[in-house]
Amino acid sequence: MKTRTTKYNVLVILLLLMTFIIYNISVYTGNPYKQPVKLSETALQGQLLWQKNNCWSCHQIYGLGGYLGPDLTNIYSNPNKGAGYIKAFLNSGVKSMPKFDFSESQKEAVVSYLKHIDSTGFYPNFEAKFKPNGWVELKYKDEK
């Protein structure tokens, strides 16, 4: 029935698929980070607000998202910014950023989400080390 090439192709695909399955399982179940930070209930609500209001279409987290506005990965721990600053932006909206009519607890939730994100790492990763083979060694948040 099947020709030899077909059998050979099916074999290669099966091998790749098996590797893919093992790989996926380790990505899904493994700990992706030394000390995984779990989002709290409040932070999860903030995440939902982040999605419902499409903050991601103008802002980036770890450089991922839309590019009209700035990256917000470490805004929480920025000495000049932080919680109050974030809330002020939500209240007023600047330039192309719309004003959001959030309740106090909703604003808290967004801040809490950004706080959790901040605790997971750095972006931009200014203290990363470059290796001669093109590799970049990231600085992780829990390192001294």
Binding site: V27, Y28, N31, P32, Y33, P36, V37, K38, L39, L44, Q47, I61, Y62, L64, H116, I117, T120, G121
Partner: peptide, 21 residues
Amino acid sequence: HFWMIPSFRSHFIKDISVQWK
């Protein structure tokens, strides 16, 4: 759409990596 599973999306780094994966 794995993020819709609550226990998945609470692991921020894993969630964002799998999303972009």
